[in-house]
Design a protein around this nucleic acid. Structure first.
Lengths: 349, 349
DNA sequence: ATGAAAGCGCTAACAT
DNA sequence: ATGTTAGCGCTTTCAT
C-alpha cells in the first residue's frame, strides 16, 4: 500500500547516493562480524569459509532480509545468470513449447530467461541481441539460423555461447533442431504412398515462416520426382484455424480435382478439417488432409489428423542442457543435434 | 583502427581486471574527444548536449561498435529497464496471451521482460520475486492476487510498482483483471435461461487454478439460488483436451441425467465436444456444453462453442500501459481495472 | 581461512 | 553545455 517517497534528504557531508534502502552485503558482513568479502564467499563459495563464519553470515542474511544485488555481482564478475531467448512470435504455440523446455531446465540451474520477441523482424532481432548483450547475458538462444548481417557479426563475435534452435543446419555455434526439408519429403512420400496424385501444399506467410517453406521444398522435390505437379497456395490470413479454412476454400476453387492437401502446420490443417466437416465433406474420401507439428488437437479431431510429430519441448530441454554443459566449461562433443521427427498416421489421409 | 589491440597483458602497475574486451563508454568518449559523462548524456539525454558533441559521440559509437553495459548503467542509476513477469504456467495459452500483450507494449517502451514460471508453486513464486528484485527490476507483474506470506511481505515492501493481473480484486498495488465469480454467474444464468436444470461444473486441478473455482462459486450461487443442485466434477488429468474428454465420460456415468456441462475453460469444453461427437452424441440436444475464455478453437467447432470471452491480450496491454504510466511518474487514477468479459453465444448450448 | 584495496562500467551530484 | 569526483554493491587480485 504505502509507497511513500524515500527520504530525499541526504546528510550534507559527501556525495550520498544510496537512494534505495536495500540491505547490502556490507551490512550483512557487519552484522555477522566479518568482512564483506567473507560474507560474499559464505554465500557463493560456502566451502571456502569456516563453518562459524558461514553460520553467522547466513543468520545475518536471514535477520536482515538481505537480497543479493545481482546487478552488482554480475558487473563485478562480468558473468550473469541471464540467458537471452529470442523468438519470432508467441502466437505460435511451437515457440512457447520450446521456451517451456528451455525454462524448465534453465531455471533449475539458477538461470533466468530474458525473453525477446522479434515479431519475425530480423532488424528487431538485431536490436534485441544488442540489448541482451548489454545485460551481459551469458548465452543467447535464437529461433532459427537466419539472421541479418549485423546480427550475425555481433553474435559470432560476442564471445558467448550461441544456441540456434528449430531447424538443423550449419549454425555459428550450437544447434538443436530438425530437418524440415526431410519432414516435407516424409509427408509427401506418405501422401504418394497412399495413392494421392493431386496434392496441394498450403502455407501461410511463407516468407516469414521459412521453415514451412523448407518443408515445401522437400514436398516439392518428392512430387516432382514422382512426375507430379506441386502447386502451392500461400495465405496471408492472421489466425491459423481461420487461415486453414480459407486455404481449403481456395484449394477447392483453384484446384478442384485436388485429392490431398499438405498443410504447413496443424493449426491450418485443423482449421481446414473443421471447415470441411461443417461443409459436409468427407475426410479423407472427398479430400485428405495432413499437417505438421503433432499438436494434441489433431489427435482429438475426428478423423484424427495425419501429421508429423516434432519434439518441441524436448528441443528446448536439449538446447538448455547443451548450453549449460558449455557454460560449465565441459566439453561439447557435437555442435549439432538432430531431435528428429515422426510421421504420425491419423485417419485424415 | 588507430587504437591498439586490447591489453591482454596487464601493465604491471595495479590490479587490472578488464578481462572482457568490451568497448566502454570511456573509450567512446576518448574517441569522440569528450568526457565520459558527456558521452553518457549524448546517449541518454541527447537534448542536454550540443549537436556537435552528440554527433561525434554517435559517430564514435558506430565506429567502435559500442554496446552499452546495461548492468553498469542500472547499478549506477539504481534503475533498470527490466520488468519481471511471473506466471504459473506457459502451457495454458491464457497466460501466454497476457504475456504477449505485456511484451508488445513494454518492448515498445524499451523495457525487457524477465520471465518467471512458478509452475503453480507459491514458494517458487517467492524465490522468483527475490531473484528478480535482485536484478533491480523496476516493476513486477504477477498472475493472480494470491501469494504466500513471505512473498506478500516482500512485494509490499520492495518499493517497486506491483501489477497483479488476471482476477479483479483488492491487490497490494495495481490490478487489472476480471471478475471470475461474476463470469461463473453469467454462464450459469445463461444455462438456466436456456432451460437446463441438471447442470454439472467440470474443472481440472481447481486448487491450482483457483480462478476456475471462483467461477464455480458464481455458478454454484446461481444454481442454488434457483433451487438447483450444483454438482462439481474435478479432474486431475494433464492435457486439457484429454481432460475434457474424460470429464464428459465421468459426468455421463456419474450424473446420467445431466443436461448441460459448464466447463472451467474452453480446452476442456472443446475436448468434451470433440469426444461427444466421436461418440455420436448430439450437442446440444443430448448434452449442452459451455466453456470459458473464448479461444478461437471454439468458434471453429461445429457446433460453435458457447463460452465467455475474456480479453487476455488486452489485459496484458492495459497492465503494461498502467505500469508504464506509473513508472513515468504520472498520476494513477485507478488502481483497479476491470477488463470485463462477454458471453459468447454458440450453438453448443 | 580471512582481509584490504582496487576496480567492474556507468551515472548522480556537485561543480564550472 | 561540459567536466570532476565519487560511488552504485559486489567480486577480483593480492596479501596475510
Amino acid at each position: 500500500m504505502s509507497k511513500d517517497t524515500p527520504p530525499t534528504v541526504p546528510t550534507h557531508t559527501t556525495k550520498q547516493r544510496r537512494s534505495s534502502d536495500q540491505v547490502t552485503l556490507s551490512q550483512v558482513a557487519k552484522a555477522a562480524g566479518v568482512s564483506p568479502i567473507t560474507a560474499s564467499r559464505a554465500l557463493n563459495h560456502p566451502d571456502k569459509v569456516s563453518d562459524s563464519a558461514r553460520d553467522s553470515v547466513l543468520a545475518a542474511v536471514e535477520k536482515l532480509g538481505y537480497v543479493p544485488n545481482l546487478l552488482a555481482g554480475s558487473l563485478a564478475s562480468s558473468r550473469s545468470q541471464l540467458i537471452a531467448v529470442i523468438v519470432p512470435s508467441l502466437i505460435n504455440t511451437v515457440f512457447v513449447e520450446v521456451i517451456q523446455g528451455l525454462q524448465e531446465t534453465l531455471e533449475a540451474e539458477g538461470y533466468q530467461i530474458l525473453l525477446g520477441n522479434t515479431d519475425y523482424d530480423l532488424d528487431r532481432e538485431y536490436q534485441l541481441v544488442r540489448t541482451f548483450l548489454g545485460w551481459s547475458c551469458s548465452a543467447l538462444v535464437t529461433a532459427g539460423l537466419r539472421h541479418n548481417k549485423a546480427c550475425h557479426t555481433l553474435l559470432t563475435n560476442c564471445g558467448h555461447p550461441i544456441m540456434e534452435v528449430m531447424e538443423l543446419g550449419e549454425g555459428m555455434d550450437l544447434n538443436v533442431g530438425l530437418d524440415h526439408v526431410a519432414a516435407g519429403r516424409c509427408m509427401a512420400n506418405h501422401l504418394i504412398d497412399k495413392g494421392y496424385r493431386h496434392i496441394v501444399y498450403v502455407g501461410a506467410r511463407l516468407s516469414q515462416d521459412y521453415r514451412a517453406s523448407m518443408r515445401f521444398e522437400g514436398h516439392e522435390a518428392v512430387l516432382k520426382g514422382a512426375g507430379l505437379d506441386a502447386p502451392l497456395v500461400e495465405l496471408d490470413t492472421l489466425g491459423s484455424l481461420q487461415a486453414g479454412a480459407e486455404g481449403l476454400a481456395q484449394v477447392l476453387t483453384q484446384y478442384p480435382d485436388t485429392q490431398a492437401i499438405h498443410f504447413a502446420n496443424d493449426d491450418l490443417a485443423a482449421g481446414a478439417l473443421l471447415a470441411a466437416q461443417r461443409q459436409g465433406l468427407n475426410i479423407p474420401n472427398d479430400i485428405a488432409i495432413a499437417g505438421f507439428n503433432g499438436l494434441p488437437l489433431g489427435q482429438h479431431l475426428t478423423p484424427q489428423l495425419t501429421t508429423i510429430l516434432s519434439p518441441r519441448k524436448e528441443m528446448g530441454r536439449l538446447a538448455a542442457k547443451e548450453l549449460i554443459r558449455r557454460l560449465s566449461g565441459k566439453n561439447v562433443y557435437r555442435r549439432q543435434h538432430d531431435v528428429g521427427f515422426k510421421l504420425q498416421l491419423g485417419e485424415s489421409t
